[in-house]
Computed example of a mutant assay.
Amino acid sequence: MKIALVGIGKIARDQHVPSIAASNAWELAATCSRAGRVDGVPAFTDLDEMLESHPDIPVVSLCLPPVPRFEFAKRAILAGRHVMLEKPPGATLSECHALEDMARKAGVCLFASWHSREGARADAARDWLADKVITRAHITWREDVRKWHPGQDWVFDPGGMGVFDPGINALSLMTKILPQPVHLKSATLEFPDNRQTPIAAQLDFTDGVSADFDWRQTGPQTWDIEVWTEAGKLHLTDGGEHMMIDGVPAGQDPSLIGEYPRLYAQMADLVAQSKTDMDLSPLRHVADAFMLGRRVPVDAFHF
């Protein structure tokens, strides 16, 4: 199938473009971006012009920041195109629900993609935990915003989500592997004096689940989930790429290597089956954190 990429920034270049190029299911047929482009691929700066010029492209993948994404998704859906949404699928829950309603009425597929759910050991962790009694769980998700979003002030603007930009990856993995849903009880959100979104967060969920997110970590990055059960301890590291049971490596590599290649394989299946996948549980947890969170001021942050 032909596919168009909208928003040619770091995540598109690092993940989307190579994943599409390596897939037998997809052909990158056009891009739309204010400045970025992919060599050898027709480039546009206006979405409507791209859609009108390429009625042969049935699928649009949106790699834009969350705030402008709704309008682009809406226009693509109303033009009869299937849409794949980079995480998070929108800036608010309401606009995500609106997009799902539009897609169903238009008869097109809509995919809220959560790349951390495609970690190499995510399925194995879900399967191992399926029949276990969980006593507690803790998420440690600490990384360096300067490394992953260099100079991108939008992540600290309203709608940019702050530390929940990476933290939602942890929540997407959590909601995949835990056998029973949990909900937030309390949260502490650390806001730099000069920013509109938090740089760190501590979360307390039901059933003994807790999380620690921080965007100020330098050196090695930490993306871990630990789950204690009556049958032993499961430990996922590197965002789900590695798994241990009581300290012993476990789980097998999936047949298709890489989070984004697996996402694009899912999108191909959804289009083939005329299905929509708009699971919003990770975003719901983020919304709850902003509603319940106790705000704590911290030192100003500068790139």
Rank of each mutant, 00 (worst) to 15 (best):
I3P: 00
G7V: 06
I8D: 02
G9M: 04
G9R: 05
D14C: 00
H16R: 05
V17Q: 08
P18V: 06
P18N: 07
A21S: 14
T31M: 03
A35N: 09
V41K: 11
P42L: 05
P42I: 03
D46S: 12
S53C: 08
P55T: 10
D56G: 12
I57M: 08
I57A: 11
P58I: 13
L62M: 11
P68C: 05
R69V: 07
R75D: 02
I77C: 02
A79S: 15
V83I: 13
K87N: 09
K87L: 09
P89M: 10
L93T: 06
S94F: 00
C96N: 05
A98W: 01
L99V: 05
D101G: 10
M102N: 01
M102S: 02
A103H: 03
G107A: 12
V108W: 04
C109H: 02
L110Q: 04
L110H: 03
F111I: 02
A112H: 06
S113M: 15
S113I: 10
H115C: 14
E118N: 15
G119V: 09
R121Q: 13
D123M: 11
A124R: 10
A125W: 08
A125D: 06
A125F: 10
A125H: 11
W128K: 07
L129I: 13
K132P: 01
V133P: 00
I134R: 09
H138L: 04
H138M: 11
T140E: 14
T140L: 12
W141D: 00
W141N: 01
E143P: 00
D144E: 04
W148A: 01
W148Y: 13
V155C: 01
V155N: 00
G160E: 02
F164Q: 01
P166F: 07
I168W: 01
I168K: 04
N169E: 10
L173G: 01
K176P: 00
P179K: 06
P181F: 06
V182S: 04
S186Y: 04
T188S: 13
L189M: 13
L189H: 05
P192Y: 11
I199W: 03
A200V: 07
A201E: 02
A201W: 02
A201R: 07
Q202D: 11
L203H: 06
D204P: 00
D204K: 14
F205M: 10
G208S: 07
D212E: 14
D214L: 08
D214G: 08
R216K: 13
R216M: 15
Q217E: 11
I225D: 01
I225K: 03
V227E: 05
A231I: 03
D238M: 12
G239Q: 03
G240A: 12
G240L: 09
M243D: 03
M244H: 13
G247M: 08
V248M: 11
G251Y: 06
Q252D: 15
S255M: 14
L256K: 15
L256E: 11
E259G: 10
P261Q: 07
R262Y: 08
Q266M: 14
Q266G: 08
L270R: 06
A272H: 04
Q273N: 15
D277T: 08
D279F: 11
L280P: 00
S281H: 07
L283H: 12
L283T: 12
H285M: 15
V286I: 13
A287Y: 01
A287G: 01
D288C: 10
A289M: 05
F290C: 09
R294V: 12
P297L: 07
P297Q: 06
V298C: 14
V298G: 05
